[in-house]
Design a protein around this nucleic acid. Structure first.
Length: 273
DNA sequence: AGAGCAATAT
DNA sequence: TATATTGCTC
């Protein structure tokens, strides 16, 4: 996890070392295209860029090298009325790597996880993908492939989720209670799958009585990273082109959170040990 | 070891 | 309120 992070960091450090120094570059305030030239060619004036923009761009590059990060806004499918592939980044970070530090195993508390709708969706997708009997915390955690997500996080959420599903199935009618906002934002899975060894599917007989809305997300914890493989032989490619993840800083000391692969049928990089 | 669950803590 | 933790059984 940290080893890999360090490796990547080193690579980035090398890369950065090869870049021109600030002194070799024109100041940010200086336009690269002279105004007359710009107007002559009908080039709209460049926006004024600040250090913040630079840092943002830098972080974007950084993130793309490392894979999606939870604090990256990621959208999936139809998300967000979608237009623009780039999303706003928060002003925070720069402290991305560790929350406790790799080496100092000293009790640094992880900020609590906030189950954003995106994160929850990923959870539900994974649970639906596993047969009922495989949907256990560790496996879910692995398939969700979210850096920093722990088995405990998943176990806790799963416990609540099961209660919710049971509750909803029991009372076959009646929509979710107002406190079920998160869970209600996701179609109830149909756990008909016996699922030996193989991916369940998302069938389509969900009683979908839900209202989907509101996004109020926030973020958490530090990252973890390692490799681990998981294979899933399922036949249909569900175009899980999903990303997601937006979590943002909730407390001051955390870091970025990441997940990698988008396709469950590929191996996945697992989390902890 | 880890799943599951209710109670309890924060 | 939402999530984490604990204590226990299996």
């Amino acid at each position: 996890m940290c080893e890999e992070a360090s490796r990547i960091d080193d690579g980035i450090a090398d890369w950065e070392a090869g870049l021109p120094s600030a002194a070799d570059l024109p100041p940010l305030s200086q336009s690269l295209i002279p105004p007359e030239l710009a107007s002559a060619f009908k080039i709209s004036p460049e926006p004024i860029r600040t250090m913040l923009d630079v840092n943002r761009a830098s972080h974007t590059t950084f993130s793309s090298l490392r894979g999606p990060t939870v604090d990256d806004q990621v959208m999936e499918d139809s998300e967000c009325g979608g237009s623009d592939p780039k999303k706003s980044r928060r002003a925070e970070d720069e402290g991305i790597e560790n929350f406790g530090g790799c080496e100092q195993g000293k009790a640094v508390k992880r900020p609590r996880l906030v189950w954003t709708p995106q994160l929850h969706k990923r959870f539900v997708d994974v649970v639906a993908h596993l047969g009922l009997k495989n949907a256990v915390p560790k496996t879910i955690m692995q398939l969700m492939n979210v850096e920093g997500l722990t088995r405990e996080n998943v176990a806790s959420h799963l416990q609540k989720y099961r209660l919710y599903v049971k509750r909803m199935q029991g009372l076959s009618d009646e929509g979710p209670s107002p406190s079920d906002h998160l869970f209600a934002s996701t179609p109830l899975p149909s756990f008909n799958e016996s699922s030996s060894g193989n991916g369940g599917n998302n069938s389509h007989n969900n009683s979908n009585k839900n209202s989907n809305h509101h996004v109020g997300m926030q973020m958490m914890m530090g990252n973890v990273n390692s490799e681990g493989g998981f294979h899933h032989h399922h036949h249909h490619h569900h175009h899980y082109q999903q990303q997601y993840g937006n979590m943002m800083e909730q407390q001051r000391d955390w870091s970025g959170n990441k997940f990698n692969t988008n396709n469950y049928s590929r191996h996945v990089t697992q989390n902890n040990k």
